[in-house]
Simulated assay, not measured.
Amino acid sequence: MRVARPVFVRARPLVVAMAALFATCGAHAGLFEDEDARRAILDLRQLRTQDAEANSAKVKALEAQIDQLKRSMLDLNAQVEQMRGELAQQRGQGEVLLRDVSEMQRKQKDMQAAQDERLRKLEPQVVTVDGKTFKSDPDEKRAYDDAMARMRAADFAAGVDGLVHLLQQYPQTGYKEAAWYWQGNGYYGLRQYKESIQAFKQLVDKAPDHVRTPEAMLSIANCQTELKDMTAARKTLEQLVKQYPQTEAAQAARDRLLTMPGGAAPARNKGK
């Protein structure tokens, strides 16, 4: 009886062949894997190199942008400082301009005030002297005021000269009655009694109703007394009492007549 061989015995050559084939394939597969790995490493290195180059380019671009930004900032700061300087200069110019305008306005105001003052001085002014109201030119008023200031300072010569000049320059002046009266007083202060009488008589003869006329007559009597002309003095006092009996000058004349030789003073009667 023939004994049958196992199946695996007959199959041994096929197994060996397949093993050899697998061994060969495995060796080739190992070769393939190493090549792929190297290629992958090279690709990775290349990518890293490309990334580094790209990053370097980006960094350089960014640095260039930063440098440009810095330059722009510097330029902007320079422009800001320039603008600040220009603004400060303009502010200073504005302040100077404001001062100039203010000064011009002040000068204009002063000029206007001076012009108004000149016009005011040129315009006739209404004045009242001894109860008499009239219009007077500024220069005319100034001449009278200056003469009276001299009289009040007891500078009778200058006061009289000023009044004489006033009457010569302004023969129709409203100050003429007052000028005659104070001119007579000035001459009296200078002891020029004849000139004093002439000045007082201007007032008595030309302005009998003036408030100063009774006093002028009393002053005439005083001058006549100083000149030792007692007859003329008594006559003047009697005329004063007769014409202006209710005045203080008339009462002073009565008192003086009582002390003069030649009789009593005239009686008080009604009159001016």
Results as ranks from 00 to 15, higher is better:
Val9Lys: 04
Asp100Leu: 11
Arg254Ala: 07
Ala143Met: 15
Ser56Ile: 02
Asp146Ser: 15
Gln183Tyr: 00
Val160Ile: 07
Val7Pro: 02
Asp110Phe: 10
Ala154Asn: 13
Ala143Trp: 01
Glu86Phe: 13
Ala154Tyr: 09
Ala264Trp: 01
Asn77Ser: 10
Ala157Lys: 08
Leu167Gly: 04
Tyr181Ala: 09
Glu177Ser: 13
Arg268Tyr: 09
Met151Arg: 01
Phe156Asp: 11
Lys176Tyr: 03
Tyr187Pro: 03
Thr128Ile: 01
Ala253Gln: 11
Arg45Ile: 12
Met217Pro: 06
Leu76Lys: 09
Leu97Trp: 01
Glu177Asn: 15
Leu166Gly: 01
His210Lys: 00
Thr24Trp: 12
Asn222His: 14
Ala233Cys: 03
Gly184Asn: 07
Gly162Lys: 03
Gln243Leu: 14
Gln112Cys: 00
Met73Asn: 06
Lys132Ile: 06
Arg256Val: 00
Lys141Ala: 13
Cys25Gly: 11
Ala64His: 06
Pro266Ile: 12
Leu97Tyr: 05
Lys60Thr: 07
Ala252Tyr: 07
Gln89Trp: 08
Val129Met: 06
Asp255Arg: 13
Lys107Leu: 15
Met148Phe: 11
Leu98Cys: 04
Ala78Ser: 13
Lys121Gln: 09
Val211His: 02
Pro13Cys: 07
Ala178Phe: 00
Met1Pro: 08
Asp146Phe: 14
Asp209Leu: 02
Gly30Asp: 06
Ala154Ser: 14
Arg254Gln: 10
Lys109Trp: 06
Tyr244Ala: 00
Pro208His: 00
Glu195Asn: 10
Asp51Leu: 15
Arg39Val: 12
Gln108Pro: 02
Ser102Asp: 08
Ala221Gln: 01
Val129Asp: 00
Arg234Pro: 03
Asp139Lys: 10
Gln105Glu: 04
Pro13Gln: 01
Asp209Asn: 09
Arg106Tyr: 03
Gly271Cys: 05
Asp51Ile: 12
Asp137Lys: 11
Glu140Val: 10
Met73Asp: 07
Phe32Met: 13
Tyr193Val: 08
Phe134Asn: 05
Ala143Glu: 02
Gly85Pro: 06
Ser136Ile: 06
Arg99Asp: 09
His210Met: 00
Lys201Phe: 07
Val59Leu: 13
Ala250Phe: 13
Lys121Trp: 13
Leu76Cys: 05
Met73Tyr: 10
Lys228Phe: 05
Tyr170Gly: 05
Lys58Thr: 07
Leu166Arg: 00
Gly162Gln: 08
His28Trp: 14
Leu74Asp: 11
Ser102Glu: 11
Gly262Val: 14
Leu44Met: 14
Arg45Thr: 07
Gln251Tyr: 11
Asp255Leu: 15
Ala19His: 08
Tyr188Trp: 10
Ala207Met: 00
Thr231Phe: 05
Ala40His: 11
Leu218Pro: 01
Asn185Asp: 09
Met73Ile: 10
Lys109Cys: 01
Pro245Ala: 08
Glu86Thr: 12
Ala37Gly: 03
Lys141Val: 10
